[in-house]
Design a protein around this nucleic acid. Structure first.
Lengths: 248, 248
DNA sequence: CGACTTATTGACCATCATCAACATGCGTGG
DNA sequence: CCACGCATGTTGATGATGGTCAATAAGTCG
């Protein structure tokens, strides 16, 4: 249910962030990054890796509540989340927030901005966020020479279409909630975190908004799941006790 | 509300379809096609146009009810709808259909299949459908030499992410219906058809499923819109009388 | 002219949102 | 360390939107 989606990262360097910080050990950089497949697994040599790496700009940290970009900002880069959680959302005609997705480490934001060269949504940090920013024009240029990279970009984009579509299903509230938890668990697991023990970085209201439910409903469902022994809830710590039953 | 989404077109040539039929006048081919911008407006010359055209394979016609591809089929080409309407859908765990989108002439199907190299959904013809099929590997290769084409592909993919996300909003039934009609109208208008007079090719049940409503609800809302003078409904013919009020 | 699919209409009911009150946690500053 | 205040989360009572069920009508196609 996750959904890598939106846009990118502001034009300005954040204070306290030496842009090219850990470049020393960077040639095998973030092994969890969505782009790592692009080169590593495709058997590219050092020179191609280096080409990709010169495009990378480490930015952050962004503190909780900071905007990474706003709707309407000019687009020129996509970014991979290196640490923390990013929430993307739009404001509808009445100014109500509509959460589009949460982005965990290793996932890419900014893809939906390519179309209009402007960010179609806002992105804010839910906790302390670090990003790897890639200039999109340069990346597209490089992709022309690196079929593997082009393919990876196509795949990332394509993947998000499918994810976003599935989100639109009209399942009852408890199924939505269960699916959300299981999906989060899987996404964390894919990055090497525990699939059992989730540490939610978003509020109940954010979850509710994302699932198109009322916050009260989220509370009640969590409580019910808890009394039924499927999960264990302690504030924002959630332990998944019975994956089986959650999938029903 | 549309949403160009899914996959592509079957491996087999349709009987009664001379694959390279109307090639004579084809160099300026379907002017309404989503790819026409890719070259024409980017100032490419005849040779690039020719390169793109040799990739095109006209297939069809597909009669109403025929599958263009099925979930799980191997993916190797995307396609632009040349005529007719395509419905894409998946079957959930209980075998219930979930409509993902409708695709009008000029729109592209198959984009979400790139990710897994398999179609993640089914596509069937709602009426008589003609397609332009493009081998995706060849297209990707060509895109390496044609920045404009690469850019166009990125844009098409990116666009669909945004469309799919917006679809997930939780608006009341009447707003969903109104938005659907207005979006259809715009999409038809963009291809040179009348924005006032819609000829729905899908059943109420399909519309309802797509909007995550019950067919009965669709009926009732259309009736109400009709008595309120916003639209005029005659079977599958719908005239939009008051665009203004529909947008609220 | 039947048999089928599609669409409409009505009666009833379930899910979930809303409203309101209350509890809990957390940060700040005394 | 405790007190206050605000944000977040929980719980209960009530009601509206829209789904379900069932019957009827209207097209469609042989």
């Amino acid at each position: 249910m996750g959904c890598a989606r939106m846009s990118q990262i502001p034009g300005k360097r954040q204070p306290g962030n030496p842009a090219a910080a850990d470049d020393g050990d960077e040639l095998h950089f973030c092994s969890t990054c969505a782009f790592s497949d692009a080169c590593v697994s495709q058997g590219y040599g050092k020179s191609e890796l280096a080409d990709l790496h010169v495009l990378v700009e480490h930015v952050g940290p962004f503190r909780a509540g900071m905007f990474l970009f706003r709707e309407g900002d000019e687009f020129n880069a996509i970014a991979a989340v290196r640490a923390g959680t990013v929430k993307t959302f739009v404001l509808d005609a009445n100014g109500n927030e509509q959460v589009l997705g949460f982005h965990l480490p290793g996932e890419v934001i900014g893809l939906s901005a390519i179309h209009a060269s402007r960010y179609p949504c806002n992105a804010i940090a839910l906790d302390t966020v670090m990003l790897c920013r890639f200039s999109f024009p340069k990346m597209a240029l490089l992709a022309s020479r690196m079929p593997g990279l082009q393919q990876q970009l196509f795949r990332l984009l394509s993947q998000d279409i499918g994810k976003a579509e599935l989100l639109a299903g009209d399942h009852p509230a408890d199924e939505r909630m269960a699916a959300f938890l299981v999906a989060l668990s899987r996404r964390y697991a894919a990055r090497g975190f525990s699939p059992r023990r989730l540490n939610l970085t978003m509020t109940r209201a954010d979850i509710a908004n994302y699932l198109r439910l009322a916050p009260e409903t989220v509370s009640r469902i969590l409580k019910r799941m808890s009394t039924e022994g499927m999960v264990e809830v302690q504030q924002r710590e959630i332990a998944l006790l019975d994956q089986e039953r959650l999938l029903a």
